[in-house]
Computed example of a mutant assay.
Amino acid sequence: MPRHAVHQYAPLDDTGIAGRFLDFWKPQAAIWIESMACFNLVSETLKRGIATALVNGHMETEQFKRWCRLRPLIAPMLANIDMVAAQTTHDAAQFKILGARHVYRFGNLKYATPAPPHDQRAASTLVSEVGRRPIWLAANTHEGEEEEIAQAHAIAEQRLPGLVTIIAPRQPYRGAAIADTLRFEGFRVARRGAGERLAPDTQIYVIDSMDDLGILYHLVPVVLVGGSLIPKGGHNPLEPAHLGCAVLVGPYMDDFVEPTAELTAAGAVQTVGNAHSLAAALIRLLGDPALARQRGTVARRVAEQEWVALSDLIAALSRLLPTPATTAPAIAARA
C-alpha cells in the first residue's frame, strides 16, 4: 500500500448503508475501476456532489444490452460522471450511447505494466550457461500446457540440436510438480527453485520464480504467452513485445483481444494451436535469427504505440482530486 493510503472494503450496495459510508469518510473524489455496477453507491456519491470518475471503463456485450434496456435510469447517472476513461474505442462508443458525456480513452490499464526488472548479474550467469544453444521461453504457463510445450520441444529439438526450453509457470509453487512430471516423461529437467543449474545436457529449465521473468524476456528471442493454449484467457503479450521478443500465442487470448489483434496485424505475433504448430514456429524462428529479430522489432514498435498514456490519465484525474492542502480522502473503488 502506498504511504497515506487506507484500505477500506466497499459498503453493501444499499442506499442507507452507502450514504452512511460516504458521510463517515467524506471523500472529495471517488474513482471507480472498470465498472460502476453498484448503482446505489454511485447515486449517493453523485447526490453529494463528489467528483466522480470511471477509469479503465469496460462493458461486456451482454452488460451493454442490459444497460440499453435500462437507459432511462442509466443515462442520467452516466451524464453526471465527471470523467469516463474507457479501455477501448468500442467501450468509449458504448458509454456515449448510454448517455456518458465526458468520455476519453487513455488506453487499457492492464497493459500499463512496466517491463519486469532484471538482475544483470543473474542474466550474465544464465547467458554463460546457455552458451550458443538455441533458447526460448514459455511464460506464465498454466496446468495442461506444460506437456504440450514439452512435446513441442521434442519435435523441434530434432531440427534444433541443443535446444533449451524454459518454462516459467504462472503459479511458481507448481514448479516441482512440473519438473517431476517432465522427468517421468523422459526429459532432462533442471529447476531453478531447487538450486539446480542449467547443465550442458538440460533440455527443459523450469523457472519457478516470477522475479526472473525480466531476466528471461531480455535473454530469449522467442516467447510463448502462457494461458493461451488452454481456455485461460492468456496473459499480456505486450510485456515480451515491449522487450523486442518475437511473440507466439495460442488460440485463447480472450482477455487480451485488442493488443493481440494489433500485434497480429503488424505481423509480430503468430498463433499456434498444438505441439506440432508450436514446434514448427520454433524451428522457423530459432532457425532464422534475423526473422526473429525482425518480428521482435515490429512487436516492440506496436507495444510502444499501445502503451497506456498514464501521464495523461493522471493529469486528467488530478483535475478532479482535491488540492494537497485539503485532508479529505479520495476513494478508489473496484466494482
Rank of each mutant, 00 (worst) to 15 (best):
C68T: 11
A309D: 14
G16I: 11
T264S: 15
K232G: 02
I33E: 03
L41S: 04
G267T: 10
V257Y: 09
A261N: 14
D254E: 15
E196K: 07
A150H: 00
A292E: 06
G273H: 10
G267E: 09
A292D: 08
G296D: 09
V206C: 02
I167H: 03
F187E: 09
H58E: 13
S35M: 13
T323P: 04
N236T: 10
F256E: 06
A168E: 05
A325P: 00
Q28G: 15
I178V: 15
L310V: 15
L22W: 05
V206H: 01
V42E: 01
D13K: 11
L248R: 06
V55S: 07
N40A: 10
P289I: 08
A315C: 12
E262G: 02
N80E: 15
T271P: 02
G273C: 04
R48L: 06
Y111H: 11
V6I: 14
C68M: 13
A53Y: 09
F24Q: 14
R174C: 12
G193W: 03
V130F: 02
L160T: 03
L46T: 03
L313S: 05
Q270N: 05
A280N: 08
A246W: 06
M77H: 03
V222D: 08
P76Y: 12
N236D: 14
H58L: 12
A290S: 06
A150L: 02
R101E: 15
D180Y: 09
A299W: 07
R183A: 11
L320H: 09
R133T: 10
P322G: 09
R174D: 08
T15V: 14
R319S: 11
P259M: 12
P2L: 14
L182K: 04
L216I: 11
A30G: 03
I33N: 05
R293K: 13
L41H: 02
V223L: 06
A29R: 00
A86Y: 05
R191G: 05
L248V: 07
L182D: 00
I331D: 00
F64Q: 07
E44S: 10
A5S: 12
H102E: 14
D254H: 14
I74H: 09
R300C: 09
G193C: 07
L213M: 13
L109Q: 08
N80T: 07
S43T: 08
Y252I: 05
A266I: 09
